[in-house]
């Protein structure tokens, strides 16, 4: 693992995932105790109706403080944010997030591509993106945009993913900086900015 590529001025680590990604997160989050001066944002495909359960589940699993995202929520280093169901999550200048109920993208709202592209626009090379397990093509376009804007892109090793389609699709169409299993992803997140 090329540790030297880890961005020393990272402001945001954004994680996207679909089917099987919660499993990966449940291996990563319990080992995560504090974030080194960056915010962690999680964008998962979820059923429209499971309103609070994902946030509650994540809260139970990690020591990192979890914030529920409301419109124009400030993005504060050290906190973990979860994209709410049924909204696209966007990033604004001035370190806030906004929400959008426009059409689904890749059959999804939140769409990972939408959040990744928006984050790339605001955070450029101070962004790290991680794409996890899933059975949908969402996320690949967003990773391209993030890489073009100077950010670091990481894809979960398809062999360690419950649903390898999404990571495979990203690997086929982009050049990830790292392809990591869940254990390595955890180590990476811990090493960001350290």
């Amino acid at each position: 693992m090329a540790e030297d590529k880890i961005n020393p001025k990272c402001k945001v680590v954004i994680v996207g995932g679909s089917a099987g990604s919660l499993n990966a997160l449940m291996q990563i989050l319990p080992e995560l105790y504090v974030l080194n001066a960056f915010a962690l944002v999680i964008v998962l495909h979820r059923r429209g109706t499971d309103d609070m359960t994902l946030e509650e589940l994540i809260k139970i699993k990690t020591e990192v403080p979890v914030k529920i995202i409301e419109d124009k929520e400030p993005l504060v280093p050290g906190f973990l944010y979860v994209a709410p169901s049924n909204y696209h999550l966007l990033f604004e200048k001035g370190e806030t997030m906004s929400l959008d109920t426009s059409e689904k993208v890749n059959y999804s709202r939140p769409s990972i591509d939408v959040s990744f592209e928006s984050a790339a626009e605001i955070y450029g090379d101070s962004l790290v993106a991680i794409l996890l397990s899933g059975s949908n093509a969402d996320g690949t376009e967003g990773l391209k945009t993030i890489q073009n804007a100077g950010g670091i892109i990481i894809v979960q090793d398809p062999q360690s993913a419950d649903m390898p389609f999404m990571p495979n699709n990203a690997i086929r169409h982009t050049t990830p900086d790292f392809i990591l299993n869940t254990d390595e992803i955890l180590k990476f997140i811990i090493s960001v900015n350290s």
């Binding site: 696209h88 966007l90 990033f91 906004s98 426009s102």
Partner: peptide, 9 residues
């Protein structure tokens, strides 16, 4: 208007 959404549209 919020710029992120407007810009996308």
């Amino acid at each position: 208007y919020s710029r992120a959404s407007l810009k996308r549209r």
